[in-house]
Design a protein around this nucleic acid. Sequence first.
RNA 1: UGUCCCAUAGUAUAAAGGUAGUACAACAGAUUUUGAUUCUGUCUGUCGAGGUUCGAAUCCUCGUGGGACAACCA
Length: 550
Amino acid sequence: MQEEKSLNFIEEIIEEDLKSGKYTTILTRFPPEPNGYLHIGHAKSICLNFSLAKKYGGATNLRFDDTNPITEDTEYVDSIKEDIQWLGFQWVNEFYASDYFEQLYEFAVTLIRKGLAYVDDSSSEKIASEKGSHTEPGIENEFRSRSIEDNLQLFEEMRNGKYEDGAKVLRAKIDMASPNMHFRDPVMYRIKHAHHHRTGDAWCIYPMYDFAHGQSDSIEKITHSICTLEFIPHRPLYDWYIEHLEIFPSHQYEFARLNMTYTVMSKRRLLQLVNEGMVNGWDDPRMPTISGFRRKGYTPSSIRTFCDKIGVAKRDNLIDLSLLEFCIREELNQSAPRTMAVLNPVKLIIDNYEDGVSEEMILENLPNDAENVRSVSFSKELWIEQEDFMEEPMKKWFRLAPGQMVRLKSAYIIQCESFKKDDSGKIIEIHATYIPQSKSGNDTSGLKVKGTIHWVDAKNAATAEVRLYENLFIAENPAAAEGDFKDYVNPHSLEIKTAFIEPQLTKAKVGEHFQFMRNGYFCVDPDSKEGQPVFNRTVGLKEGFKSTQK
RNA sequence: UGUCCCAUAGUAUAAAGGUAGUACAACAGAUUUUGAUUCUGUCUGUCGAGGUUCGAAUCCUCGUGGGACAACCA
């Protein structure tokens, strides 16, 4: 039984449009600019656009908004396509705004002919100052009254490369006194003698976002053009161009972009992190990029679930990172095999266990699945976690401490007898005795212990590099924090360790997940070599024990 | 001192004028061979003031608070 899920406001609009017969089928689009990698905020938009189309039997176009050759690159085009497909979505058409450059040029000529556009020779500074302010109207300059013929000729000359960058722009002639700043004769075309990643040197004039986006939607007959809130003031202009060009009336709808605690979503800042070497590239597991989450071990379904849970609305939001973590934990808890790995080892010696003897212990790979088991060797010397031993235990400490008993997972109950320290006071060796009757599976000891700890047989333990990631940012809302965002970069966001692992784990394959018991969920990194896995911590376990407890 | 958008628990998100619900978080209890998981429970909410109405989270007015907008970026 599927529970009826309520509609978000965009679904309501679509259902209304379908019901009224305004549209018989819907078409959405996802329109990234190829100037960076996609991040989790884009995932929200991708999930929204593709799911909406799927839900209502429509389709989604992928359209690259590549109208600014300076910042764009095919590397980004490729990564964007990969990320969308990895998330589990497929577009019907792959389009580029640059596909429409010729048509957009004709649209511009149409507006000039209608007396609705003019070539302005002013500098960008002059245009900016003539625009006025929120409280003062702008002023109309002398170029605004150029004849249609002059404008036609000048615009053609702009296209033909007669002028330098910045010498002239084409502007829409709307209203220099409009309360909407975007209506104060917005720039339609600017001159950029720059190489474009797709059109090469075919053009030296490029349309602005406002003169490209709506028309591109219209050319593709997009019915619902869904974007983020900051484009609300652009909507009247979007409509104005479509109205005066008399083309297919696509409509724009806006939703609030995703903000997440301890996460920076600004492409500009993410680029800065990459360029300044503060992370190891766009797919660094600390990055909030889709490729970063992928590498860290997040699954596409966990991200889709997250996007579904956060909802769609128009109010500004700041989502708890813990919700995303919940989504991946919930999934990995079902699927990730448990395995014992010791990240901060200390030697445990079982004094009354016979030297040179080994036993095979049977461990479940997943809880409550007695069929799915493996065998792990056990002998006199083991590695256990430093954190599982306390010299002076706090109240309610269930794990190892002098004189205290714990169970070694799937093996014996032991009692700590003594420990050794090195000169610096660090504990280097723990001695214990085991209870032979307490063997897991046929425990006749009658003992009950509260703590269970994991271990790895020192005799045949393998080693592996593990990478522990903490939040890259220490500010709850880095976007709103005062000062330079770099002040909020966490210098301890990456910790690399060599862990002892069960020997068969060396066969783990790239992308495989494991739960390293109390240490959390890990995923094999693509950097791994055959037989030498490198593990990224995907997410820690939910912390039940408060170490601050007295 | 402009125009526009928004306002429901700590965080998000529902409730098409008719019982304010759900998830995450937090807390508590039970179970547990990892203080996890699992299960049960608790906690906290309609920004304010008026109005319309039998009835308002929802509609209207005025406030208040937050956000966006003056790139030859998207």
